[in-house]
Design a protein around this nucleic acid. Structure first.
Lengths: 222, 222
DNA sequence: CAAAAAAGTGAATACAAATTCAAAAATTGA
DNA sequence: TCAATTTTTGAATTTGTATTCACTTTTTTG
């Protein structure tokens, strides 16, 4: 053989993959999964449609990976908060606030990731991810209940409720509507209070934790 | 003209329409919107595909109508509870419990109506309906806040949170999983407690209201 | 019954997008 | 530069349904 993948080529391939992912992510952020057709992704990436299939075996796989990356980043941030110091109530407040704020910053992407209908395969993945979000909250709850910080309750159910609560409260605002900052913060607070009270936590504690790590639910990952 | 629609024919037409709706509903209940293709609906109804288009201008319209009917029935039941006597807390508990129980009875249909991805037109309708559910709860909250029964809060946001909470908590159980009665009732209670506490309501009051009207979130509307 | 009109049929068509694949371009090492 | 090999291309194919429409059947009334 006279051809063996050079290092340079190796790099380019990896680079291509990343560019495809980035393009998909951007399209999803702008117009939801709906707008991220293979042809569009290819065009934005600057390659042919066939190329996409060299890197991803199907559109669903591509989507799942994009979804997974974005969600993974969020989970990481939340997990950090969940494992931080402070009472369960404080951590819960911080986590909810953090998630909601970030979602409001990248509304389209958040909508796509949380709600937008795609195909079954992607939806299955989404369900898994939602569950993951739930687990972060569940951990906080379990800890709080154990320490007597929170009243006894089914942490599984409560965690699901929490995820559902802020998620649904976001659907409206998350749409094309561009709310102003004031409204947003008000919403953040409403949701936070709701969730905290829901699990029987102590009254809120403003200005807790909340690391300001890299944005992930906004279109440009700079 | 030598032909004018007789009363009998009029009836048959209306009957056909209903049968199409019923067939669609049944298919959705069994396999989600996914399984309710025009061909399948036609077959189950016992008519040709072309017939469907005599009664509904598109599949989306058919779906929206099915969705609307089912949701409308639920809304009616909830509204009755919301307008009933009793404290806001009691009515809220009753409404949540009622919805969750009914959803658990017809899991597939509930899933389809609450979550299953279809097409944009249907999804838009679904959003509207979700909002409607929210409004029922909002009414209870506003009333409760006014009467000093519940602490001050943004009823809009809280209502959305409530809908999101029980909805999300249902997703898991709503799947193919067939939980037993005990688990179910436990879930119902967890959700109810969560929601009630979330809005700052008084501790629950077992066995309140809950009219046992006709089932609607179960496949057969007998 | 016969003609007029509507209801009903279902094979053919339209369609939108994902996926493939034969050919073209690019890369590599001698 | 050349031959071997891989990467890339994008038009053609596939796929799965929704939708249409020319035709058949039924209904109605004179």
């Amino acid at each position: 053989m006279v051809y063996r993948r050079s290092l340079l080529m190796e790099e380019r391939l990896a680079n291509n993959r990343d560019r495809i992912l980035a393009a998909t992510r951007k399209l999803v952020a702008e117009g939801g999964f709906r707008e991220a057709q293979i042809a569009a992704v290819a065009a934005l990436t600057g390659v042919s449609t066939g190329m996409i299939y060299r890197y991803f075996s199907s559109k669903a796989e591509l989507f799942v990976e994009v979804l997974g990356a974005a969600v993974g980043a969020e989970i990481e941030i939340l997990t950090e908060i969940a494992q931080g110091s402070g009472s369960a109530s404080e951590r819960l407040s911080a986590a909810v606030t953090c998630f909601v704020r970030r979602a409001l910053k990248g509304p389209n992407l958040a909508y796509a990731f949380v709600f937008e209908p795609v195909d079954p395969e992607v939806d299955t993945a989404r369900l898994r991810y939602r569950k993951k979000f739930g687990n972060v909250f569940k951990a906080i709850l379990v800890d709080g209940i154990e320490k007597g910080d929170l009243p006894d309750q089914d942490p599984e159910a409560s965690a699901a409720c929490i995820v559902g609560a802020f998620t649904e409260a976001l659907v409206g605002p998350i749409g094309p509507t561009t709310r102003n900052m004031h409204d947003r913060e008000r919403l953040v607070e409403s949701i936070q209070t709701f969730c905290l009270r829901a699990v029987g936590g102590a009254a809120k504690q403003e200005g807790a934790a909340e690391p300001t790590s890299a944005p992930a639910l906004s279109s440009d990952p700079d």
